[in-house]
Design a protein around this nucleic acid. Structure first.
Lengths: 204, 204
DNA sequence: ATGATAAGATAGTAATTAATTACTATCTTT
DNA sequence: AAAGATAGTAATTAATTACTATCTTATCAT
């Protein structure tokens, strides 16, 4: 009975999880700002109105999605960097795991960029801001550690290096949007990171 | 009389120019995908319906805006690089003039990114794609010239270097969206470019 | 001056959107 | 097995959207 394909009537928390999954999925193939509640519902075989049994507003859906993204992305990069002694190697592991995350969920960076663009200070926008801040903190710490152990030059501009780290991934995303090909990200990432790495390592 | 502040009843081509200006302006302070024809008209002291005297559809407005952007941006970077013998110095001049353009019109990179995100192949999206392709061509030529004259290492990954060049600017834009401060771009640009430059110059 | 015409205002339309409603089906607990 | 709680449906709402039809006004060549 429970094994039957009758997957309607999910418990509320599962339904919310499925909703988040649907939004992340949709954002991978269409402009996040054009995702309607009707489209979300259709993608998960539900009626549009039923969504509002689980979320009070559409903004609350976006909030839940961005919370999911923030939690998962930070967990991924933390896990990737864990146990790596060399700060530079840890940064590379962070970069690659971030890129892998983006390749699995290409809608993620577009959703984040889309939220940042909003003029009003909405809840989802604040979540993205805090995510990027926490991300930058991790980078700052690693870069400073790299200076301390001599892997990175002491006069390296920490803030600029962090900005460029994130921008590098944005560049890869833009390239994949241009080519209409998500797979490219995985292919280009090591090549682009190699240049970034030389940029922060080289003295003078 | 013509000197009076009564600037209603503009000739059609001037009205179109003012419309483009209004859209570029609005995109600097709000999500481009949320710019309505009513908002455009209000920003230029016109009624919403009057816009359609000069553009057949809203998409035609975006098309005109993106044509304006493509023309101006390419002209700016071409002008900046002109007469500079050193390819590396020319790239730096391109970068700085691009950043200056973005700082003057912060809506531009967001409009471009927004257009690229659209799933359908619209006219404005095609214009953006062609703009970035032409941009990348110029970068490829400069990088190859840099290799030829010995300013850049022969084994530098040209394509990756071009991707990173554009991504670097995207990173600056994202930072300004985070901080809600456009001025930051001008301040951060030289610092970030310095790292990029070391990345493409350094061998191994 | 005056009439032709280009440009703008006003007041619509149809379609789409997020959200709400009344009602029904299903699960869970006693 | 009855009863209450939870989840879903289908239809409808008000607001917003791009776009249009009709009337009015300004501009300019003659």
């Amino acid at each position: 009975m429970t094994l039957s394909t009758h997957v309607k009537h999910l418990p509320a928390d599962e339904r919310r999880a499925v909703t988040i999954e649907a939004v992340v999925d949709l954002a991978g193939s269409q402009n996040p700002s054009e995702i309607t509640t009707a489209a979300i519902a259709k993608h998960m075989n539900l009626t549009q109105g039923a969504l509002f049994r689980h979320f009070p507003t559409k903004d609350a859906i976006w909030q839940a999605v961005m919370e999911w993204v923030a939690e998962r992305l930070l967990a991924r990069i933390d896990c990737a960097a864990q146990g790596i002694d060399s700060p530079l190697a840890a940064m590379q592991a962070m970069f690659m795991s971030h890129v892998e995350f983006v390749a699995e969920h290409p809608g993620v960076p577009r959703m984040m960029f889309g939220e940042l663009q909003r003029a009003e200070q909405t809840a989802p926008k604040r979540i993205v801001q805090s995510l990027i801040q926490r991300y930058a903190e991790r980078l700052h710490r690693l870069i400073e550690a790299g200076k301390a152990c001599g892997e990175l030059p002491a006069d390296l501009d920490t803030e600029a290096a962090a900005i460029l780290f994130i921008g590098t991934i944005q560049g890869l995303v833009m390239q994949s949007l241009l080519a209409g090909n998500v797979e490219r990200i995985r292919h280009d990432a090591p090549r682009v990171f190699a240049i970034y790495q030389r940029g922060i390592r080289s003295t003078q």
